[in-house]
Structures are given as C-alpha cells and as structure tokens.
Design a protein around this nucleic acid. Sequence first.
DNA 1: ATAAACCTTCCCATCATGGGAAGGTCAAGC
DNA 2: GCTTGACCTTCCCATGATGGGAAGGTTTAT
Lengths: 129, 129
Amino acid sequence: MNIGEAAQESGVSAKMIRYYEETGLVPKPSRTTSGYRSYHHSDVHRLRFVGRARDLGFSMEKISQLLLLWQDRKRPSREVKKLAQLHLDDLQRQIQRLQEMHNTLQHLVDACQGNSRPHCPILKDLGAE
Amino acid sequence: MNIGEAAQESGVSAKMIRYYEETGLVPKPSRTTSGYRSYHHSDVHRLRFVGRARDLGFSMEKISQLLLLWQDRKRPSREVKKLAQLHLDDLQRQIQRLQEMHNTLQHLVDACQGNSRPHCPILKDLGAE
DNA sequence: ATAAACCTTCCCATCATGGGAAGGTCAAGC
DNA sequence: GCTTGACCTTCCCATGATGGGAAGGTTTAT
C-alpha cells in the first residue's frame, strides 16, 4: 500500500506520515524497487493510533511513550493511566489559562459601549500606566 | 533608557522588544553613538500595551490593529469592540476544543483501573480498528 | 504514447519565544 | 589607567506540528 492509501486509511496526512517516520515515532517502512514507501495493515493501525492520540492533544513525546505501552503486552494499566492523567492536567491548565483570558476580556467587552465615540475601556485597560 | 531597563519597566523581554521592532509592531528607537537602542517613556508605554494584549492572547496581527485604534483619537469604540469580540470567539473555540479533548480523555481515564494488569480502555480506544 | 495521478526529496513558512555565540561598550572599583 | 562584570549588538538556531510547493521520477489508465 502506497503512502497515499495509508494516509486515507489512517486519517493521517502523507506529509505527517513522513514526518513521524523521520522523528522515529513510526518505523521506516520498506520500499518498492522504485523507492515508494510500502505500508502494511499494521502500519496503518499504528498511524491511526497516533492520529487518535493527536486528536486528544497528546504531544508526540507522550505518544511515543503511549506506543511503547501499547506494544507491551505486560504493561500495568497504571502506567497508561498516569500518562493520561498528566495530559489531563495539561489540558486543564490550558483551559484555565484561556478561560482567564476570556473572562477578563469579556468584562472589558461588556463595559465597552461599542458606538461611534472613542471612549473605550478595552484600550484604556491595555494602555493603563 | 537602554533595552534592559525598558524590558524591566514594560514587562516585555529584551528579545521580544527586538523582535517586535523587527516586525514593525513597535517603531525603531533612536540609537546612542555606540549603537545601543534608546527608549523613551512613550515607547515603554506602547510595549506595556503590547504585553498586556499578549497576556490576553491577542495575536501580533490583532495587536497591530489594536495599536492603530489606540493611537487614533477619533476611533469609534465599535471598532475596538468588534476586534475584541473576534478574539473572544477565538478563545471560546479554543476552550471548547480543549474541553472536548478533556471530556473524552476523562471518560477513558475514569474507565481505566490503573492497576498492575494490562487491560486498559485508554489504549483500547486509541488502538480500535 | 501520452496524460493524469501518484510518488520522492528538499526547502521554506508558520507563531511567538528563547538560547547562545562572538564581539563591542560602559561603569565601578582598584 | 586598567580590569572586571554587566550590559549591549547582530546572527543563527531551535521549538511543535503542520502545510505549501518545486523539481523530478513512477505508475496506471486510456
């Protein structure tokens, strides 16, 4: 299976497949005599795993660890849960940070008349001494 | 005032001050005979504005527009409010995206026993066919 | 045989930020 | 006056994950 089809099947773009290969997240596939990458079902499976983990916001670094656990039939689920919990905490921190920005800005926007006059609490706040 | 002091006063790192200058977000300051950048209070004021806007998550592109409005004593506050509202929408979208990731992952984490056995709903979900 | 649709590698851009090297300048203390 | 340390300068590189696109080779279908 060529890279295009593997991309289709896995939902990961050909560009990203090459990049994941370069960074070692997925193994180098074999090549046809003309140099085309050739993928098996198991490769696609792995790519789909990576894609799903990306959809959940996992970094490539963390995905690399998840892949190791995925491959390890003797992993303690504790390890997986710990990794996932770390990422949950990451997400929570990001959400909180954005939420704080949103709250602050919402207050300013609410206080702004939004008419033809120049007075504006938003600019006033940003430009406060 | 040298760049280091301007950085202190404005809360924007010297690195970023140079970068903002390079991209045109802030004007090129005058230089001493030896080539050191020299800042006035008004420059620091502008930098503080930029820093605060960054703290609220505004992109440099949007900050550039905010600066124009800030300088324009005849701006209609409507324009400012419109820009801010666009950013609020951006923030809301980002929050929602992260919240969805968080929710999904939280469910998986809750379902994972986190013990010494290998069975794990998290990996199962990521690796589902 | 030709054209379209693939594939390859390589380089560049994003966005905002920091690290660090190599070298010049300034101020304080001896 | 000289040394030392704390500044400053420019330049290059790295981040993380992604896409765009060029130049050129291959495969497949007509």
